[in-house]
């Protein structure tokens, strides 16, 4: 009876601790408070396996603590120790029970594995996005957003409450596409196309990460996922597909500088020198996926990209005079 009481005490302490700790993370990237269907399915399996394992742990710890207290060497007492060779019954018990427990875990595991792998859309008009990982940034190409095809970088916008199908392409080294709050990860493998689906149950902003070591800038290869309501998403698509026309003199001058200095990488298909598509740079919320979107940070990035992101491939743009720099930044920030 004592051992059962202790077991419940241990279990409830662990459950309490887990609850407390689960709330500690940031909801934008906490896998324990998922905001997507895939994340939910994964959390269910995490919970099931944790519960089974905590049960086993409780049994082990109960026996362990009991043994350590009951059979420790006491001063001045010598006990006759029986040299037993084992017990067939006990050994069968602790072979068969784990097998049963693992079977209980294995069935939903296999089911969910197949469910998550069904990543081909059933309907023609399901939103498909081609995701490509580069050192150290992400490209998102919308293949059929409201019938339109266009590219963005570092920011993935999706309609909430709808499954979005991702085609994952790799061009240079391994990366791994991970939005902890929405779904588990899948590797970006050069020379291979992987597929997965992702959804967000509610509109919101989520943090994405590269999870596979990809070089010096790996830690900063962040991106964001924005889940919009249907109307907002349509507006966003419309905005992204309406070309930006420079208005002021400064913007026009800036465009010239951009075309002379930047376009050779920022519109180049060669993966070794390719940079992100910047045609809608003004709509972004981050610079290089990590700095907040303002002129000071833009200048910092342009003048020395490697000081922000080690290993970044972009050369330093530190040869422009003040006026040229101002015009270039004006052009970039206004390109909405």
């Amino acid at each position: 009876m004592v051992s059962r009481q202790r077991l419940w005490r241990v279990l409830s302490v662990f459950a309490l601790m887990a609850l407390l700790l689960a709330g500690c993370g940031d909801p934008r990237l906490n896998a324990l408070t998922p905001k997507g269907t895939a994340g939910d399915m994964q959390l269910d399996l995490i919970t099931l396996s944790i519960l089974i394992m905590l049960g086993v742990f409780a049994v082990v710890i109960t026996i362990f603590v009991y043994v350590l207290i009951r059979y420790r060497k006491k001063k001045g007492v010598t006990r006759e120790v029986k040299q037993v060779h084992g017990s067939t019954l006990l050994e069968i018990v602790w072979t068969v029970i784990p097998i049963i427990l693992l079977a209980i875990l294995a069935v939903p595991t296999v089911q969910t594995t197949f469910k998550l792998a069904a990543a081909q859309p059933k309907t023609e008009d399901a939103l498909k996005i081609k995701v490509t990982g580069y050192q150290y940034w992400w490209e998102f190409e919308y293949l059929n957003a409201n019938g339109k095809r266009f590219k963005t970088a570092q920011e993935l916008h999706i309609p909430a409450g709808e499954k979005v199908y991702l085609e994952i392409h790799g061009k240079d080294v391994l990366h791994s596409f991970w939005v902890p709050a929405l779904a588990g990860k899948i590797d970006v493998v050069p020379g291979r196309v992987n597929t997965m689906w992702i959804d967000a149950k509610q509109p919101g902003k989520y943090q994405g990460k590269c999870a596979e070591l990809c070089g010096a800038g790996h830690a900063l290869m962040d991106f964001k996922v924005y889940a919009h309501s249907k109307g907002d998403f349509d507006n966003w698509v419309a905005q992204q597909t309406t070309p930006y026309k420079p208005q002021t003199v400064a913007e026009k001058e800036g465009e010239k500088i951009f075309k002379q200095n930047c376009i050779s990488c920022h519109a180049n298909p060669n993966p070794k020198i390719k940079g992100p598509d910047l045609s809608k740079f003004g709509t972004r919320e981050t610079i290089a996926g990590i700095l907040s979107h303002n002129e000071t940070n833009l200048k910092k990035w342009l003048e020395d990209p490697e000081s922000v992101k080690p290993g970044a491939r972009m050369p330093k743009i530190n040869y422009l005079n003040d006026q040229e720099m101002k015009n270039l930044m004006e052009y970039l920030m206004k390109s909405k």
């Binding site: 394992m53 875990l105 588990g184």
Partner: peptide
């Protein structure tokens, strides 16, 4: 004993592929 048991427990948890999609490389 308890330390290794915890490592073994998380080992079983990691063997579940859908859950591993969250754990992997984290």
């Amino acid at each position: 004993v308890p330390t290794f048991v915890i490592g073994g427990m998380t080992g079983v948890m990691l063997s579940v592929p859908p859950a591993d999609y969250q754990y992997q490389d984290s």
